[in-house]
């Protein structure tokens, strides 16, 4: 298991949550504690064990390529914290992420 020192600010940046200094301290400690408990898993030898992503095996669940109804735009834009005309509006985008 890796070290329990968590760069909580980096993680919060990835998760896009602003943290106060106090939260950084409290969450940092709590997550460290939790990872301490998680450490117990290293007791188990899992080298030859397959990972379970889904517990009930299922394959090839696909839909037919058919179109059905969409939401009404009025309803869609009603939800928006901010809309402008027929669009959702957001503050300026600083850097291209993709």
């Amino acid at each position: 298991m890796p070290s329990q020192e968590i760069d909580i600010r980096y993680v919060a940046k990835l998760a896009r949550i602003a943290l106060t200094d106090e939260e950084v301290e409290v969450f940092g400690r709590q997550l460290g504690d939790l990872l301490g408990h998680v450490e117990a898993l290293s007791e188990l030898d899992t080298a030859s064990i397959a990972a379970t992503a889904q517990v009930v095996e299922s394959r090839n669940v696909e839909r037919e390529d058919v179109v059905s109804g969409c939401l009404e735009r009025e309803r869609v834009l009603e939800m928006a914290p901010q809309a402008q005309g027929v669009y959702f509006r957001v503050p300026r985008i600083i850097a291209e992420e993709t």
Binding site: R63, V66, V67, S68, G69, C70, L71, R73, V76, L77, V86, Y87, F88
Partner: peptide, 15 residues
């Protein structure tokens, strides 16, 4: 099941 079409009125092909 929204249509895959180019263009169209903004925010009308959503579910």
């Amino acid at each position: 099941a929204c249509p895959n079409e180019f263009g169209g009125e903004p925010n009308t092909k959503v579910c």
